[in-house]
Design a protein around this nucleic acid. Structure first.
Length: 904
RNA sequence: GGGCCGGUAGCUCAGCCUGGAAGAGUGCUCGGUUGGCAUCCGAGAGGUCCCGGGUUCAAAUCCCGGCCGGUCCA
């Protein structure tokens, strides 16, 4: 940690209100309090939870009430309430999940590029953090995967100060004292330091009765090369734990009771787990601060302490708390699952989607350990019911959520079905190592606890143990040096460097998307890369490939533009050869319009299809990638199963309806914050653009999304759409390929040509191709049967066909069969009788390949050895061998005979 | 984004480490047993060992590349 100047924390507010700076006797952290007697920071693990014993004025608050109280209070204090963002941070390219309220404003607001939606503002942001997923339940509410972070933010610009440290601390004091009714002496402001996302600053943790109720962060530094550089934009970033406030006021046995109310009992009931005594749970919760998640043995100790304090049998306590912890874990996970899916997460085996699958599988595993056969979706349904007013998106996407949970359960069952097979094969061993368990879990997803349970059923004696830190060991297997992001650049490095010093190119294709030609001045020429002051050549971006065309100079030279690329705002025309141009020359440019127009059709139709897919498949559909070329369009969408043919037809029909409905298409450029507030984060489906303003493409009453591409001005120009291919490219991602406009005709022609070619090869007409093919296949089968009959005949006669000699009581058959199938059968048949050897000699290039088989009372070894001595190469084992040799047939046979003569 | 595991008969898989004739169970077909079913007995059909390349006299097996599936981690 950095050496922090003490004055950062020495606020006027503290000094004027008789707060004292103390040092915690346990953790040595300085903190501020009005209580002269206090010498511990009132935070776990320096103390146990003792807020149960505090007298506060507030009535018990549910999560919703706590949230409302917070929002209303800060609204009263001049803050504007803004709505929360989704739990999936899709406006961020470096994060999957919304882990804090400040994430909503990164990176564009926090870096000062765009203003916040209001200033100061207040919100309650549902967040998801999976770091502590292993600790949920066993700490009885200390750790959760989802929580609401209530926050008031103030953005202080050099020319516009809102408020800073004193006001922030005072606001928090007023909220806690006046609204929650906490005696001011119980408030503690722990000095702390916060760092994240390249920023840093001092912070206070507000602790009361063992609970950290809020953190107040003052973002005032940027970390540059290890140094702290003061920020121009100083941000008040606070985070109040809504669930903690609810628990604090309700004083229920555990935080789960406070968050979920009656749902706790519903879950115990539905899962079929007997309830656990409240007094036992409360004691466990009070002492939960003593658990150190990094030291699994502390969980064991925690239970011993609970048992001791209540004078109960440890085995009983352990059993009861284990059961309760598991039910709590299911409670927590099912809420998080519902929230993730409601915001459009599609479970997958990698990327964002895996986070959903992970939680679903953890929940399913725990249900199994609880011995419950309830369907997970029934529990998720309860969560939707419980939270529907707080998070309306749950109800809106209920069908999708339940459908996915059900499907995921089925998939997990398939994985689990491997357990019994694995268990029975492992149970024969005496001992199973932890390493084996880790490998099985890592590679095959077999949960160790379930596996061991199964193995013990077969073999109770076996030595096997699942260590407490099992999942830590799994994580260790994955610790590797992170590879540098090897982004594929479309331009060589020297060209990219060149762009650094060039002015941005004026984008004529935005002024008029239909513009085909233009004149411009040369800004820079490097090899065959040409930069102009303005251009109508569209550079590759947003999935739309770069334009091609021609550029002419005043001397009458014509250059082909083979591709167009950009580096930031500098556009490079890539020419077919190095031009004889210099800075300042005037040139004329013209894009290949036929090509570009097709690209535009494929681009606009992509937007039409995306919305059609959302309408048909569900709101969760998100663009995972796209490419538009003159030949076809390609759109990758997130969806949890391969769409049926019916669904694809519906999408196609719907899109064609919009095309025929002549919808206007127009670009609009608006401020990013305004765009987000108005249209939501779905405008980022195609990626997150840079800059303060975003360019949106609006198809009237149909679709709106951020896009930098060139578009038609009306959907009717698309003409027609045909989806030509649908495939699953990875778990949770479906690829659609399609053609539009006159390319549909081209595509039809291609298919027609293929059909004609096939017909030609089958010597028939396209009309009769099916009948012809059927006949053809029948004939093929008949021929094969015929061949088999001949083989059988040959086999029956094999003794007569082969050359037969007897040496030293051993019968030698010499054959020469090139049909491999027949040869093998023949060799088998002839070696059925004892004391027989079959030799097949066939020619291969200049060599003879000798295959030797014997009846099972003989061995080939000596013969092989003899032939090797004569220069052959090869080997064999038991009753079969083969060797390649230059010897002629007679020599081979003689060698074999003499070997047998000498005793085999 | 990265790691690991897998792809062999319709299905479930063994064989691969240590290269040498493609296997088991189940299902299927036929026959026997039975009043019929289950069971049992016997026979048979069924294979691009994922694809491509390399090493080798010889590749399901070893090496490299690709495709597909599973799984875990971030």
């Amino acid at each position: 940690m950095v050496q922090v100047n003490e004055n950062e924390y020495r606020l006027k507010f503290f000094l004027n209100n008789n707060y004292n700076r103390k040092i915690c006797q346990v953790c040595q952290t300085p903190f501020w309090t009005k209580d002269k007697e206090r010498n511990v920071c009132a935070d776990i693990p320096c103390t146990d939870y003792y807020f149960f014993d505090l007298n506060i004025k507030s009535p018990p608050l549910t999560v919703r009430e706590a949230r409302q109280k917070f929002l209303k209070f800060f609204e009263k204090k001049g803050h504007t309430i803004i709505p929360p963002k989704p739990v999936l941070a899709r406006w961020r390219e470096d994060l999957y999940l919304t882990i804090a309220s400040i994430v909503d404003f990164q990176p564009f607001v926090t870096s000062g590029i765009v203003p916040p939606p209001a200033n100061p503002l207040v919100l309650s942001q549902p967040c998801i953090r999976l770091e502590d997923v292993d600790n949920v339940g066993v700490t009885f509410g200390r750790h959760l995967t989802t929580f609401e972070m209530a926050a008031h933010h103030a953005f202080n610009y050099p020319d516009k100060q809102i408020y800073w440290k004193d006001e922030t601390v005072e606001l928090s004091k007023e909220f806690f004292v006046e609204e929650i009714g906490i005696p001011e002496e119980e408030l503690n402001y722990k000095e702390s330091w916060w760092e994240g996302g390249g920023n840093a600053g001092p912070s206070f943790e507000v602790t009361v009765g063992g609970l950290e109720l809020a953190t107040l962060v003052f973002m005032q530094y940027e970390i540059k090369d290890g140094n702290y550089v003061p920020l121009k934009l100083k941000i008040v970033d606070t985070g109040y734990g809504v669930e903690r406030i609810a628990w604090f006021t309700q004083k229920t046995p555990t935080a789960f009771h406070a968050i979920y109310g009656n749902l706790v009992y519903t879950f115990f009931n539905k899962i079929g787990a007997p309830l656990v005594d409240d007094e036992l749970l409360k004691t466990a919760a009070i002492l939960a601060g003593r658990i150190d998640p990094d030291k699994p043995e502390t969980i064991k100790r925690h239970r011993e302490e609970v048992a001791k304090k209540l004078g109960l049998d440890l085995k009983y306590v352990d059993q009861e708390l284990t059961r309760a912890a598991r039910v709590f874990q299911v409670l927590d996970h099912t809420k998080t699952i519902a929230l993730m899916l409601a915001d459009g997460l599609v479970p997958s085996n990698s990327g964002e989607g895996y986070l959903g699958r992970l939680l679903i599988r953890r929940a399913l595993r725990v249900l199994r350990l609880l011995g419950s056969d309830i369907k997970l979706y029934e529990l998720v349904k309860e969560q939707i019911e419980y939270w529907k007013e707080d998070f309306p998106q749950l109800l809106k996407n209920k069908d999708y959520i339940l459908d996915v949970v059900n499907l995921e359960q089925e998939r997990f069952n398939e994985t689990l079905s491997k357990i019994s097979l694995t268990a029975s094969s492992l149970s024969r061993r005496k001992e199973i190592s932890v390493d084996d368990l880790v490998k099985l879990y890592d590679s095959n997803g077999i949960p160790p606890d379930l596996l061991v349970e199964e193995i013990r059923k077969i073999n109770p004696e076996i030595k096997v143990e699942v260590p407490y830190n099992f999942y830590g060991l799994v994580a260790k297997r994955h610790q590797t040096v992170p590879l540098k992001d090897t982004k594929k650049e479309k331009l060589p490095k020297d060209v990219i460097d060149l762009a650094e010093n060039l002015p941005p190119t004026k984008k004529l294709y935005y002024e008029d998307q239909y513009k085909r030609s233009f004149t411009a001045k040369v800004v820079s020429v490097y090899k065959n890369y040409l930069v102009l002051d303005q251009t109508t050549f569209y550079p590759e971006g947003g999935g739309q490939i770069g334009d091609t065309g021609i550029i002419k100079d005043e001397k009458g030279n014509t250059y082909q533009v083979v591709d167009t690329q950009k580096v930031k705002d500098v556009i490079f025309h890539i020419l077919d050869k190095e031009p004889s141009l210099k800075e300042g020359d005037e040139v004329y440019g013209e894009i290949d319009w036929q090509r570009r127009y097709r690209i535009m059709k494929h681009h606009t139709v992509t937007h039409v299809i995306l919305s059609a897919a959302r309408k048909v498949l569900g709101e969760h559909v998100w663009q995972a990638g796209a490419e538009k070329t003159p030949q076809k369009g390609r759109l990758d969408i997130t969806h949890y199963k391969l769409p049926t043919e019916e669904e694809i037809k519906k999408i196609e029909d719907l899109a064609n309806y919009i095309i025929n409905d002549r919808r206007s298409v127009r670009p609009l450029i608006i401020n990013r914050t305004e765009a987000e507030m108005k249209y939501g984060v779905s405008i980022y489906a195609g990626g997150v653009p840079e800059g303060a303003d975003v360019r949106l493409i609006e198809i009237k009453d149909w679709d709106i999304e951020g896009c930098g591409g060139t578009h038609l001005s009306n959907t009717s120009e698309i003409g027609a759409l045909k989806i030509i291919n649908v495939e699953k490219i990875q778990d949770g991602v479906i690829r659609l390929e399609y053609v539009a406009g006159d390319v549909v005709a081209q595509y039809a022609r291609q298919e027609e040509d293929k059909l004609k070619e096939i017909s030609r090869q089958l010597s028939t007409s396209p009309e009769q191709i099916e009948v012809r093919l059927k006949r053809f296949l029948e004939e093929y089968k008949e021929k094969e049967e015929l061949l088999n009959q001949y083989r059988k005949m040959m086999l029956q006669e094999i003794e007569n066909i082969s050359k037969k000699e007897t040496v030293n009581g051993v019968t030698i058959y010499i054959i020469n069969l090139f049909d491999e199938e027949l040869r093998k059968e023949a060799m088998r048949k002839l070696t059925m009788n004892q004391k027989s050897i079959v030799v097949n000699i066939s020619n291969k290039g200049n060599n003879n390949v000798v295959e030797i088989a014997t009846s099972n009372d003989l061995r080939v070894d000596k013969i092989i050895e003899a032939l090797r001595r004569e220069g052959g190469k090869g080997g064999g084992k038991g009753t079969y061998g083969s060797i390649t040799t230059q010897l002629n047939v007679d020599k081979i046979v003689n060698t074999i005979k003499s070997t047998i003569n000498n005793g085999i």
